[in-house]
């Protein structure tokens, strides 16, 4: 009978496709982005980061890079703790991707220094000789449009200050891209194992900040925030050994801190960045 009535067929077909649609597409809205999966530490993107995110979308980086770590051992080992729903609450659009032509970027933030990213984006092969990632050097030439950025922040409803917007003046698309990459996955507190990052990071044998009292003072703060738990508030040692001045050369210290000693329970701290590690070294070598 429906074979003779096109309108009836249309109505029945619509009904048939709406059942699965309602159950698997509409109902999940009651599970997702609710209080149950919200994560308090997750913050919206800043104006600069959001610009970077839009460039990421424009350039189609998602065609090669996923941003989703599955709760599977190989994923977690390689890329860090698995992704949780609340981490994406501000993502419009989502950028999970469906291919890994390149590594997952969900937790790329702080994995490398800014410098590494600037160089890698301009010429990926200078950092990773056999990579097939395209070059994005022209991002250095284009400036972000501050007025447009404000409109976008308004549409998204993300908070910003006048200062954030003035800070956009003169920033290149590359600055925005790197700011975005460095934000990814950093909302959640994390201790990760690191591997051999020091080489790209250190760039000097001797501590450029050695003996500088301001650097020593800052290094002390970094130490208190990051190292005291394992090495003791007075550096006298706890589960980690005592850290006395003069035990190491500057560059050895730097490498140990940046790369960690993963097999021996010493996490890598390359995510602290070159500057702060040199400050730590200055602090550890002082007195």
């Amino acid at each position: 009978m429906w074979e003779k009535r096109p309108v009836l067929l249309l109505l029945l077909a619509t009904a048939a496709i709406l059942v699965g649609t309602i159950v698997t597409m509409v109902l999940p809205f009651f599970w997702v982005n609710t209080e149950a999966d919200a994560i308090a530490e997750v913050t919206p993107y800043t104006a600069l980061e959001n610009e970077g995110r839009d460039i990421y979308v424009r350039e189609g980086c998602n065609n090669c890079h996923s941003q989703l770590i599955r709760p599977l051992a190989p994923d977690v080992k390689r890329y860090g703790p698995y992704s949780r729903s609340g981490e994406f609450a501000y993502d419009r659009p989502f950028l999970w991707g469906s291919r890994r032509g390149g590594p997952d970027l969900a937790r790329i933030g702080n994995k490398y220094s800014d410098e590494w990213h600037y160089r890698h984006m301009v010429d990926p092969r200078s950092m990773v000789p056999e990579t097939n990632m395209p070059e994005y050097s022209w991002l250095n030439d284009a400036k972000v449009d501050a007025a447009f950025a404000v409109r976008k922040m308004d549409v998204l409803g993300f908070p910003y200050t006048q200062g954030d917007i003035t800070a956009l003046e003169g920033k290149t698309e590359m600055d925005a891209m790197v700011a975005y990459l460095q934000k990814l996955g950093t909302d959640l507190p994390r201790t990760g194992k690191a591997a051999d990052k020091a080489k790209g990071l250190r760039k000097a044998e001797e501590n450029p900040l050695g003996g500088d009292p301001a650097a020593i003072a800052e290094g002390k703060d970094v130490y208190a925030g990051n190292c005291a738990g394992c090495h003791g508030a007075d550096r006298g040692g706890n589960i980690g050994p005592e850290l006395a001045p003069g035990d190491f050369e500057d560059d050895e210290l730097f490498d140990t801190i940046a790369d960690g000693l993963p097999d021996d329970g010493m996490p890598g701290f390359s995510r602290l960045g070159r500057d702060r590690i040199w400050k730590l070294v200055a602090f550890l070598q002082a007195e």
């Binding site: 501000y90 419009r92 989502f94 976008k152 998204l156």
Partner: peptide, 9 residues
């Protein structure tokens, strides 16, 4: 910008 966010999107 998508009207859906993150996991919903």
């Amino acid at each position: 910008y998508s009207i859906y966010a993150g996991t919903n999107d």
